[in-house]
Write a protein that binds this DNA or RNA. Structure first.
Lengths: 221, 221
DNA sequence: CAAACTTTGTCTCGAGGATGACAATCTCGA
DNA sequence: TCGAGATTGTCATCCTCGAGACAAAGTTTG
């Protein structure tokens, strides 16, 4: 692990809030892994394989909705930890995680985490706090989605997805439509309307955010 | 606390899985509280006031959706613990909790929990597991809601709500419509259709489930 | 018991999404 | 470079939801 990695990790609100001693202990158990585009980190239903953090690149978490369509493409950006739910409770993974593009990850296997936590049980509390943070994200998502118009939900999905990098989102419209929960044709109509309003630029398998404040405005209008 | 209360608590899958020693320690810090109909246990935005469990009666958790409508009326049944999220991470409550009808609750204030956890840090891990369980519920909810037809979402909402007792759900159609995220008139149309199919019986401010397997069938049809 | 209020049941109409179809555009490998 | 395959852009049609309106049924209160 290089020095810039430490800076990236320290900037995360969860990891950054952990006392330095336990942070060190966790990093001692971690190994860097480099993954190819599309590599599977874990899959829905798998037994837990530990805790992960993104150092570089992009990881996408994908759930399957009940009717088979791909669901919440949460895009994880560098500095963010994930995979804590199954690591803490030992139950199967609730979704898929895969590298999008080449990605460098930090990996703390279950046994390694258990070893560190045996030395310092407070690590369980820390991990619990990470679950809390993600639980709050899920609750916010529910509150912001239910009963909102398609226009608003699309704006939210775009903003969530663009968090991960510059304003460029590489995604097929078919997939984006699945995330918002609408038909591809309907998505296209709304996307084009955003484009006419100067909020985004639409290209092949890509959406670029041009006016982030404008998109934010859509949500509250 | 009476003996039947112990049986109710032990039947809960979270509490029942905790080792007896820590279970006792938690109960030593708990006090019974009896609340009137409509009494506020905590409100959205409040600072944490501890951990709660339902001994008798009904508690409803209500979120507010972004457009102001009431959202996820999760009905908590006896034996279930709630309020762990803010108790663990110290942040404001994400929703309202209120007694529906008279309710007997078990209350572990934040300071009391901290006291117990100071004696046995593993309690933090236990509380983390409770967050995990509720996180999985939230994820399941998202997966089952997004992109589903109104008919399916209504069936799910009815089944969730009826868990709390016999098949009788006391709720105004206006409120139920808010839970499903549709207009009252639309709810009424679907409810009447369910009634024609012999799945439910509709009365004033009440829905009674007649055919639970039939409702389950609606979800997968 | 009767009036005031709440809730339900049912119209109609307008708006907007789902679906199937098909041409245009783009990407990638031979 | 060219062609196959994938993806986007845009139709027309059907269907269902949302909203307003209002009568009917139920509940509460004096």
């Amino acid at each position: 692990m290089h020095d810039p990695d430490h800076a990236i990790l320290a900037a995360d609100s969860w990891f950054g809030a952990i006392p330095a001693g336990r942070r060190e202990r966790l990093l001692q158990e971690a190994r860097v892994e480099v993954l190819e585009n599309g590599a599977r980190i874990y899959g829905s239903g798998d037994p837990p394989n530990g805790l992960w953090a993104v150092l570089d690149g992009q990881v996408r978490l994908k759930g399957l909705s009940a009717n088979g369509a791909e669901l919440l493409a949460l895009i994880v950006r560098p500095g963010t930890w994930f995979g804590e739910l199954s690591t803490l409770d030992g139950h199967p993974r609730p979704h898929d995680a895969m590298a999008f593009g080449m990605a460098r990850l930090l990996h703390v296997p279950v046994a390694a985490f258990a070893r560190a936590a045996a030395a310092d049980p407070e690590l369980y509390r820390d991990l619990g706090l990470l679950v809390c943070a993600h639980q709050r994200t899920a609750l916010r998502f529910i509150a912001q989605s239910v009963g909102q118009s398609i226009r608003v939900r699309l704006a939210q999905a775009l903003m969530r997805a663009s968090q991960a990098g510059d304003g460029r989102i590489t995604i097929r419209q078919e997939e984006l439509a699945g995330v918002v929960g609408i038909a591809r044709q309907t998505l296209n109509r709304h996307l084009k309307r955003f484009e006419r309003d100067g909020l985004v630029a639409v290209a092949y398998a890509q959406v670029r955010i041009l006016d982030l404040p404008g998109l934010r405005g859509v949500i509250t209008e």
